[in-house]
Design a protein around this nucleic acid. Structure first.
Length: 290
DNA sequence: CACTTGACCTGTCCGC
DNA sequence: TGCGGACAGGTCAAGT
């Protein structure tokens, strides 16, 4: 579930906490969560100083003084939980409570710093991963190389977005938005929210969209991404303290996971849920027509 | 090549 | 209450 705004929220949090810390030890549970752990950890992780925390698409990049970068993909249920002396910081899945003692059964990777602080990579499922990659090579690994542009960069104009989306002109707009090689960082939440904002039905073929549609979609997309980052990500657990008190999940969303509720623009019309591009998809049938 | 579908996982929820 | 099955969704591999 972590998409661009959630990962950006994690990045901002970790950027305040990690730089300057020195890694003392690291361990992982399954090879899948940290494929090269055995050889890499000793050589490039232990003793490394954290320089900075970056983000590209939904990927977190922790640059280390060893000229290696710890690359993390949270996929759907991943969390990074920092436990310092007085600081607890967590991010991830709305259904996951961060109250419990860590490590727990879904802890995949554990980093310990020389000052006693810890960073846990938790994942209910085993889809997410961490990898150590030479910093200079990060941009050229397959996944990173194929990514589309960052929607929040200033040169991402509506015309740029149109050009990107037209690479998938024969598919529906929802599938195109979810395609990371078209635009980076959009997932199911912001695809649904931005399409609703732009009055576009998710099944609309990209080639059928007008300039006006692209302009509206561009504005709606940037608006929801910015609003969500401003709110610390859309999930209640994206930024919680150690008390782990429950927040309200997606309180700002207009349609996502709101089937049966009133459309904010048409109180008499209820949000419905469909399946588009193999994903649960939420629309207002009055705002979004084919 | 363009596009779609299923697999990967585990926890949760729904119906019987 | 227990249990099977559908569902959740980011990405990749396999299929059309």
């Amino acid at each position: 579930m972590p998409e661009l705004p959630e990962v950006e929220t994690v990045r901002r949090g970790l950027e305040q906490l990690l730089p300057g810390l020195v890694i003392a030890s690291a361990s992982s549970d399954t090879p899948k969560s940290f494929p090269n752990a055995e050889t890499d950890v000793r050589q490039f992780l232990v003793g490394a100083n954290v320089l900075r925390v970056r983000r590209r698409a939904k990927v977190l990049l922790v640059d280390l003084s060893t000229n290696y970068t710890l690359v993390t993909h949270l996929k759907m249920t991943g969390q990074l939980v920092f436990q310092g002396k007085d600081v607890h910081f967590g991010a991830g899945h709305p259904n996951n409570s961060l109250v419990g003692e860590l490590p727990d059964k879904s802890t995949r990777v554990r980093l310990e710093f020389t000052n006693g602080a810890k960073l846990f990579f938790n994942e209910q499922r085993k889809f997410g991963w961490m990898k150590l990659i030479p910093t200079t090579e990060v941009a050229s690994i397959d996944f990173m190389k194929k990514l589309g542009p960052e929607p929040l960069q200033s040169d991402f104009t509506w015309q740029v977005m149109q050009r990107c989306l037209l690479k998938r002109k024969n598919t529906n707009i929802k599938a195109a938005l979810l395609d990371q090689t078209v635009i980076a960082g959009i997932g199911n939440i912001y695809a649904d929210e931005s399409l609703w904002g732009a009055y576009i039905h998710p099944s609309t073929l990209v080639r059928a969209l007008t300039d006006k549609d692209f302009q509206a979609l561009h504005k709606a997309l940037l608006d929801v991404l910015r609003l969500s980052i401003e709110k610390g990500g859309s999930t209640d657990k994206n930024y919680v303290n150690a008390k782990g008190k429950k927040g309200s999940y997606l309180t700002f969303a207009s349609v996502f996971r709101r089937e049966g509720q009133a459309c904010p623009r048409h109180p008499a019309t209820k949000i419905i849920k469909l399946r588009v591009a193999g994903r649960g998809t939420h629309i207002c049938p009055k705002c979004q027509k084919l």
